[in-house]
Design a protein around this nucleic acid. Sequence first.
DNA 1: TATCTTGCTGCAAATTTAGACAAAAGCTTT
DNA 2: AAAGCTTTTGTCTAAATTTGCAGCAAGATA
Lengths: 342, 342
Amino acid sequence: MKEKATSFDIAHKAGVSQSTVSRALSNSPLVNKETRERIQRIARELNYKVDKNASNLRKQKSSTIALLLFEDPTSDDSMINPFFLSMLGSITRACASARYDLLVSFQNLEDDWHAEYEDSNKADGIILLGYGDYTTYRTKLSQLEEQGTHFVRWGAHDEEHPGISIGCDNYQGGYDITRHLLSLGRKRFAFVGDAGGHAPEFMARHQGYLDALSKAGVLKEDTPRIDAISTEEAGVEAMQTLLKMQTPPDAVVCASDSIAMGVLKALRYSDLRVPEDIAVVGYDNIPVSAFTTPSLTTVQQNTKLAGELLVNALLDAINNKPVEDYLMPAELIIRQSCGSAE
Amino acid sequence: MKEKATSFDIAHKAGVSQSTVSRALSNSPLVNKETRERIQRIARELNYKVDKNASNLRKQKSSTIALLLFEDPTSDDSMINPFFLSMLGSITRACASARYDLLVSFQNLEDDWHAEYEDSNKADGIILLGYGDYTTYRTKLSQLEEQGTHFVRWGAHDEEHPGISIGCDNYQGGYDITRHLLSLGRKRFAFVGDAGGHAPEFMARHQGYLDALSKAGVLKEDTPRIDAISTEEAGVEAMQTLLKMQTPPDAVVCASDSIAMGVLKALRYSDLRVPEDIAVVGYDNIPVSAFTTPSLTTVQQNTKLAGELLVNALLDAINNKPVEDYLMPAELIIRQSCGSAE
DNA sequence: TATCTTGCTGCAAATTTAGACAAAAGCTTT
DNA sequence: AAAGCTTTTGTCTAAATTTGCAGCAAGATA
């Protein structure tokens, strides 16, 4: 069918040595301009492509980075958390512009991923993208670090986690969106979301919310907080609980858009109108949030920037440049459900 | 920091030759069970991992497949078509279970992708996932085929396209959803979507729609069809056009969910109620479609199965097994916007 | 003329693994 | 005991590239 051309074939055809071909194709200044151009032309004609495996083997680097995606344990098998999909897209793009390949892999926290990739020279570094219970993999992160593997992690800076992290300021996001509701005159707040142990992201959002309230003097002893995992169903249940109060809140702050979807759904079957009687806000700006009625006010994490930051930080780490944790600002997306859009 | 162990190091430590190590680690029956276990134990102790590049170079295969994702030209830069994201997820999973790595890459139709991957031995085969104007890349597909590259394509079987394709039966989907509306007593139909040149998928959906109508005797000379690209805005405009008719339709069939989003939006500001006065249906079952009010009746393509089929077909092709095009059935998802759900 | 640059090119080593072939050892068979 | 077979291991080479070092021609300097 086809015999793949090697650099020797090019060398033969161009009347030079194979090493000159190698240098010419990598645009080395060591080879004369005319020779270089002639060689490149011949290579094009023969449809020659350097063999990545041989090249990587010799160079001991792969120009590939591995993206390890940890599944959201609450989502069903076929769906991926929309936020991470968005990250995936932007990471892919960022890799492409850095001329790196991206190896994508879904992982379970329990799996043996911590040694697979860089050790086998498949990738020069690893990006960890996950959610939920970080405690599970803390020890594995330490192992990675011990091995000298290059990696960056999406998530908040955390003293207890080794390695570099890039994340979005969940505290600020929670604070800002609560401030916004306060500025619209809302008084009786409720928070829906797992502010407890599992997701550190949610905890930070909740803390921002609390601080905004207490600064405004609106935080009371009995300001309700309903625990909920990040699903629509949990949001429905939480709102039903809130509706049973004598004086339901006039503002519900949800720890994620998925929860807010459920809250809106529960309210649809109630007497309360959104946003007139009760404001609802979410977090994440997932695509769905723009399409609900009313559309959802939420906090956006800039996934495009996040992808670029993750990739650049990893590349710096690979090249032994100093890299620091980075916290991106969160951005308020004001829509109808908070009552301030016309 | 750490010196990576090679198979020679293991061999030395185990007092055997390097080739015995190689055999032992690949569980070759040629090596004595005790020796094998001893070698494997030592390899574990030294945290040895076979160097993928060396291994691939020697074997002349990479156990990697490349996924080339062609951007939907109508979508903005930061977002990926939700349907393809879903495919991406399922392809990743299918690869993992076949113990193949997945290299993901976004491409422009114009780029030089057609030779990059398999020729450089980075991947054993290619999955092409795209949308829109196939004419642009027909010639490149031929080149791929000429080169003997292994590839499969997502999309309908099409005489004019070389290579294997796996797709979903868009004709049947269009037919079924139209039949469903007919069974609910709808009489005055309209189709919204680019039934013209660009996306063959849309053409097939439209044809199914037409055949269902004409079989039921409902197809008239003036049954309207409004061209629209697959965006919400286009859907809004199209519906506004339809609303200007003396007797607007009582059923709108949209070529995609994105279009249906726009149609619903336009109807929200009209006198017509959905689904009482007018039914609206979409295509794709994107996540948003379950959350609109009313929720959208649509056609689902089984992305999980699709991913598995694509991967398996490609692996068969790589192993020179005979592979045939495959058309998956489309599945009706009945929600509120058609008026049949309670 | 001898030596020293300078700019370019070639030689050969290095990278790690897999597999063809060879070889040794042990056993059976005639 | 010689021959033949099986089982297991070792030797050696090929896979395709990159790169340090050596060498070479030509011009410059002493």
